[in-house]
Simulated scan of single mutants.
Amino acid sequence: MSIIIITAIISLLIAVLFLVALIWSIKDGQYEDDFSPPNRILFDDPATKDNK
């Protein structure tokens, strides 16, 4: 019966760790640009002197 308590505590610690990582990535701005990545492949890069 004690193994159930140990595994429950470990799983809660892992869940809290993932929650902290999610909150940290949201506050760091990881998910702010949700428009550009899907549309970036549709347009060519602007021409520079080297690309002409």
Rank of each mutant, 00 (worst) to 15 (best):
M1T: 12
M1I: 12
S2R: 15
S2E: 15
S2W: 14
I3A: 07
I3V: 10
I3P: 01
I4W: 06
I4N: 12
I4G: 10
I5L: 07
I5P: 00
I5N: 08
I6T: 14
I6C: 04
I6A: 14
A8S: 13
A8K: 12
A8N: 11
A8L: 15
A8T: 15
I9Y: 03
I9H: 02
I10Q: 05
I10C: 05
I10D: 00
S11W: 07
S11V: 14
L12H: 05
L12W: 12
L12R: 11
L12C: 11
L13N: 04
L13T: 08
I14H: 12
I14L: 14
V16N: 05
L17M: 14
L17E: 13
L17S: 15
F18H: 10
L19H: 06
L19S: 08
V20C: 05
L22F: 13
L22Y: 11
L22Q: 08
I23C: 05
I23Y: 10
I23E: 07
I23V: 12
W24F: 15
W24D: 14
S25E: 10
S25Y: 08
K27H: 08
K27A: 13
K27L: 15
D28L: 07
G29Q: 05
G29E: 01
Q30E: 09
Y31K: 01
Y31M: 04
Y31A: 03
Y31R: 04
E32T: 09
E32L: 04
D33C: 00
D33Q: 02
D33P: 03
D33N: 06
D34F: 09
D34I: 13
D34G: 01
D34K: 09
D34W: 08
D34L: 12
D34S: 09
F35I: 13
S36L: 14
P37Y: 01
P38I: 13
P38H: 06
P38D: 03
P38V: 13
P38K: 08
N39W: 08
N39A: 04
R40I: 10
R40F: 04
R40P: 00
R40T: 10
R40V: 11
I41E: 07
I41W: 05
I41N: 06
L42W: 06
L42S: 08
F43S: 02
F43H: 05
F43Q: 01
D44Y: 02
D44E: 07
D44S: 06
D44H: 03
D45H: 03
D45T: 04
D45R: 03
D45C: 01
P46F: 01
P46W: 02
P46Y: 01
A47W: 00
A47T: 00
T48S: 02
T48Q: 01
K49F: 09
D50E: 12
N51K: 07
N51V: 06
N51R: 06
K52H: 05
